[in-house]
């Protein structure tokens, strides 16, 4: 008998069931999964205006944000980079490469970030108000590394894509994408650690700065 069979058999034996898992039992489990029932959500996440809640939660996470029109995104990026004193050179997702980056003095490369990039630029699938969270789904043109390797991560969030809770985000994934992609990446603020004397330090292995541009 393989380890697999032994483990499954032991589980069943200890639960007082004999033989292998039955078709009925599998059907029951699948039915429960299909139902994907939703648990209680924090009352605050439902009561408040999603945009306002999202902004407030971003502040708690030390995520900065600005609100602009889509056309002026490059200018906002230029402003942010100047203020943060970082190079105006981005590794970004293809979907935003059509914006007028050169006009804002920005060098925009539509590719996955590498270790030399200092600013990663991404969009997002949606954002979650409850926790100020960005949800990024991986795809050929939406590499995850752009949100991870560079010291600064700038993310465009269309206001219409802010949902109240994580359950709402998953509902969107189901209706718009179907099967989950390789990576569903939930980002909530810059990376941090408290592993030395429980002192919070911003900027562990991921970005030091996360800037959200709301359009």
């Amino acid at each position: 008998m393989s380890a697999r069979e032994n483990i499954l058999a032991r589980i069943r034996r200890q639960q007082g069931r004999s033989g292998p898992t039955t078709a009925e039992e599998m059907a029951l489990v699948r039915a429960n999964i299909r139902e994907h029932g939703v648990g209680p959500k924090p009352l605050a996440a439902q009561a408040e205006d999603s945009l306002e809640l999202f902004k407030r939660e971003c502040q708690r996470l030390l995520t900065t944000f600005a609100e602009v029109d889509e056309a002026t995104v490059p200018h906002e990026v230029a402003r942010y980079c100047a203020e943060a004193n970082i190079a105006k050179s981005l590794a970004g997702w293809r979907e935003y490469s059509h914006l007028h980056w050169p006009a804002a003095g920005i060098d925009y490369a539509a590719r996955a970030a590498n270790k030399d990039d200092t600013v990663g630029f991404t969009g997002c699938f949606c954002a979650i108000a409850e926790t100020g969270t960005l949800l990024l789904l991986s795809s050929p043109d939406q590499p995850k590394l752009n949100a991870l390797l560079p010291e600064t991560h700038i993310c465009v969030v269309p206001k219409a894509r802010i949902v109240p809770t994580m359950e709402d985000a998953f509902a969107l994934v189901r209706t718009e994408v179907g099967e989950p992609p390789r990576s569903m990446f939930f980002v909530s603020g810059p990376s941090r650690t408290a592993d030395i004397e429980q002192t919070i330090v911003i900027g562990a292995h991921g970005p030091y700065r996360v800037h959200v541009i709301l359009i």
Partner: peptide, 21 residues
């Protein structure tokens, strides 16, 4: 914390055309 900074849900291997994974 209200949420951890990174929640990574990984499903299977990289897909055709993916630049990472």
């Amino acid at each position: 914390q209200t949420i951890a900074n990174y929640l990574t849900l990984t499903t299977g291997t990289k897909m055709p055309g993916d630049q990472d994974g």
